[in-house]
């Protein structure tokens, strides 16, 4: 008889101890599940197909526009990610410079545009075309630059360099580092 009483006592003790451990673990688990504001900011706010987006400056003048088959905008970070963008950049005289690439990101607060993957920029009047892998553009200062290998073609001449800067308003281009130029010679005197 005494054996059964002792056995029942130990079983009861075991159940109480296990219950205590479970109670101790469970509340701890609940705190980890608390709400994470950072994760919320990464979530895209708008996803648009075949979209056109236009940015205006403080004075209402058009600064840049983007056409894209797919646009993902995240309001909290003011970042817009676009696929196969066709960007039109407007200079101070509202001449239109055309830029394309495989992908792009635009910060709608700072007007910073980055075009990546076979990026190309076409000048409006001077008939030249620039190719590079990664093209940056500051929509406020209207300055485009690239730190990757750049090819500038203005047929019949071709220019290569490791870095490029373009100031749209002045139509000034600067190539630096390993600059190579190929120019066909004039054959008839003026």
């Amino acid at each position: 008889m005494r054996f059964w009483v002792r056995k029942r006592f130990w079983i009861t003790t075991l159940v109480v101890v296990l219950g205590g451990i479970l109670a101790w673990i469970d509340p701890r688990g609940y705190k980890d599940q608390s709400f994470n504001p950072d994760a919320r900011a990464q979530e895209p706010g708008h996803v648009l197909e075949n979209a056109e987006m236009t940015l205006f400056g403080d004075t209402g003048t058009i600064q840049q526009s983007l056409m894209t088959p797919r646009l993902v905008h995240t309001p909290q970070t003011a970042m817009t990610d676009v696929t196969s963008p066709i960007a039109t950049l407007f200079d101070s005289e509202e001449r239109q410079w055309l830029a394309t690439a495989e992908t792009g990101t635009l910060n709608t607060d700072t007007q910073a545009l980055t075009l990546a993957g076979s990026a190309q920029l076409l000048s409006p009047d001077e008939g030249w075309q620039l190719n590079t892998e990664l093209l940056h553009y500051n929509g406020v200062t209207r300055h485009a630059w690239s730190d990757s290998k750049t090819v500038l073609q203005q047929p019949p001449q071709r220019l290569d360099a490791s870095r490029m800067d373009i100031w749209l308003d002045d139509s000034q281009i600067r190539l630096t580092n390993n600059v190579r130029g190929t120019h066909p010679p004039a054959t008839r005197s003026p």
Binding site: Q172, R174, N177, R180, G181, H183, P184
Partner: peptide
Amino acid sequence: SQAPVEVEADRLDLDQRAGTAVY
């Protein structure tokens, strides 16, 4: 005289408006 003119330099400045190109 028909051969292309090949240029190497540290820097090139093109001013499309003034039509100048300076290596």
